[in-house]
């Protein structure tokens, strides 16, 4: 599904991602964790094909990222909720569904998945941050794309909502969708089947959360991450 080889990204003269490599298959739930500024968003934008690459290759479904035939094959929630603030929830979804050639019934379906049905008629600018993120998530779910790339979708949400969203991600992965979720909160690692830990544009760790804790002999993800950094420097 996703095949990243020696990916390098340079932005304004700074190397942001250094020869990153990993692969992901169908149905994986991957947590892309790392502190703020580690390059999570840049990596996600690279997967989406909207980031200029400086080296390496990035194949999605056997095609180079950004290919015209991939448009719509990846659902994307950007870090800033990229929906129209001056439209209602439903108008937003109808527009994105129209661009994707999805039927109107699809709008009702994704609204139900993110529990926004009752807010369908509200203008997005009148919604809370968490509700906006869910609108953005709903647009990403339109047409059930095989890959979901979600940039910090749970940040700033209350614990109940966060738990519900992780359940949704888990269900999506179980149904065969590859889900890549980023977060700078290490504790979110517990929800993922596989962790990619990113620091200063380098991949420090790529395995299950249990392995991370075992390797660090710790029960806290924050501590495990700290020990990982210490052991590598």
């Amino acid at each position: 599904m996703i095949d990243v080889k020696d990916l390098r990204v340079i932005r304004q003269g700074n190397e942001i991602l250094h020869e990153l490599s990993f692969r992901a298959g169908a149905g994986e739930l991957i947590g892309l964790l790392g502190p703020s500024g580690s390059g999570k968003s840049t990596l996600m934008r690279s997967l989406l094909g909207v980031q200029m690459l400086s080296g390496g290759t990035l194949q999605i479904l056997e095609r180079p990222a950004g290919s015209a035939s991939l448009r719509g094959a990846l659902g994307y929630v950007a870090q800033s909720s990229s929906v129209y603030l001056d439209l209602t929830v439903e108008e937003n979804l109808r527009y994105f569904a129209g661009i994707l050639h999805e039927p109107r019934s699809e709008v009702g379906r994704v609204l139900a998945v993110v529990s926004l049905t009752t807010l369908a008629g509200r203008v997005v600018s009148s919604l809370s941050g968490g509700e906006r993120t869910r609108v953005s998530l709903a647009t990403a779910l339109l047409g059930s794309p095989p890959i979901l790339v979600l940039d910090e979708p749970t940040v700033g949400l209350d614990p109940i909502l966060r738990r519900d969203l992780w359940r949704t991600f888990d269900e999506l992965a179980k149904s065969g969708t590859t889900v890549v979720v980023s977060s700078h909160v290490m504790d979110e690692a517990a929800h993922c089947a596989r962790l990619l830990l990113l620091r200063d544009g380098r991949l420090l760790f790529d395995d299950s959360p249990a392995k991370l804790l075992a390797a660090a002999k710790s029960s806290s993800y924050d501590e495990a991450f700290e020990r990982l950094i210490e052991s590598q420097s």
């Binding site: 015209a68 950007a78 929906v83 994105f96 661009i99 994707l100």
Partner: peptide, 13 residues
């Protein structure tokens, strides 16, 4: 600036 343009460019528009 809001990011909707980048979002649209990940879609078949």
């Amino acid at each position: 600036t809001v990011g909707t343009l980048e979002r649209l460019f990940t879609l078949p528009l």
